[in-house]
């Protein structure tokens, strides 16, 4: 053996120092999660008081809207947004999917709220079951800790967000989400490669290039700039919610199947309905604690 005692001691010092450095880095990040710097814009402006008189007979949309405005008077960390989807009322109209695409100018291949459909039984006794699947805004999100650059994180109100200008587009978070709730914006446009020899459209259209207002910022899709190349996901329309508007999937739901509200408000509509029904979450064995609940 050609290793001297001095070689072994020196190697031990180097290996020990390298190991200690690596361990410090990992432990520092693992236990400093809650104090993570906010990089996605939050809106703290004033929201108008509800102008209509709301009571229990009012449309549930108006009730939720009213509650939303009250919750917005609280500091961010005291709110906890949640969603409840009553599958008995979902008719599979896809209005929520389309509304979401329109609100966030989602390009081809990017979807925040697909509706899963399942046919059960045998003809003639068959039934179609629809399951809308927004981002679950998990209490224990598996997608955030795999991000190598802290571009995605859970806000104080529980909404999992992506900082488009920080995201490097590695797509690790896409693989880490068991619900497949993240999609990547590969830069596609609806009007690319269409037969328009006379250039009547004059390039990409407004409905696909923006502007749109995710994360309270005016966003436009062009060239290779963000959000093209980024991971994208449902964010409970926080740009609407923080201005006193319900998420677009809630307002477009013709069956009033989607309920949205503050889980920290014991008197909120969402909490009342949850308390009266058996609710489930998707893939509970994954231990992610989703904040999207379902009534079967």
């Amino acid at each position: 053996m050609s290793l001297s005692r001095r070689d072994i001691i020196r190697a031990g010092v180097l290996v020990g120092a390298a190991f200690a450095t690596a361990l410090t880095g990992v432990l520092k990040d693992r236990f400093a999660f809650k104090s993570r710097k906010k990089s996605v814009r939050e809106f703290n402006g004033k929201v108008d008081e509800p102008s209509l008189k709301i009571n229990e007979d009012s449309d549930i949309i108006l009730q939720m809207q009213s509650e939303l405005k009250y919750s917005l008077q609280k500091p961010l960390e005291e709110r906890k947004w949640g969603m409840l989807i009553d599958l008995r009322k979902c008719v599979g109209c896809y209005a929520c999917t389309v509304g979401c695409i329109s609100e966030n100018k989602l390009p081809p291949g990017v979807v925040y709220r697909p509706v899963l459909s399942e046919e059960t039984g045998k003809f003639p006794n068959t039934r179609l079951k629809f399951t809308p699947r927004p981002c679950m805004q998990c209490e224990r999100p598996t997608c955030t800790s795999v991000c190598p650059v802290k571009a995605t994180y859970k806000r104080a109100d529980g909404v999992v967000v992506i900082d488009y200008n920080q995201c490097i587009g590695c797509r690790y978070c896409l693989t880490a989400c068991p619900y497949g709730a993240r999609t990547s914006d590969f830069g596609e446009f609806y009007t690319n490669n269409i037969a328009d020899n006379n250039n009547l459209l004059k390039g990409n259209q407004k409905y696909e290039s923006g502007p749109f207002f995710e994360y309270h910022k005016e966003q436009k899709r062009k060239g290779h700039s963000s959000p093209i190349g980024n991971a994208r996901k449902c964010h409970f329309c926080i740009h609407r919610v923080e201005r006193g508007l319900l998420p677009v999937c809630v307002t477009t739901c013709i069956g009033r199947a989607t309920i949205f509200g503050d889980l920290n408000n014991p008197n909120s509509t969402i909490n009342k309905i949850i308390s009266k029904n058996d609710v489930i979450t998707l893939l509970p064995h994954k231990n992610t604690h989703p904040k999207v609940f379902y009534i079967l």
């Binding site: 999660f33 650059v149 802290k150 590695c170 690790y172 290779h224």
Partner: peptide, 26 residues
């Protein structure tokens, strides 16, 4: 393979060591 190759340097300047990708890159 990255969506934003020009931002790859961020893995060294704002790393998150909870990610195995960061650990690998380092």
């Amino acid at each position: 393979d990255l969506g934003h190759m020009e931002r790859a340097y961020k893995i060294f300047f704002s790393p998150s060591f909870t990610s195995m990708m960061t650990f690998n890159a380092w």
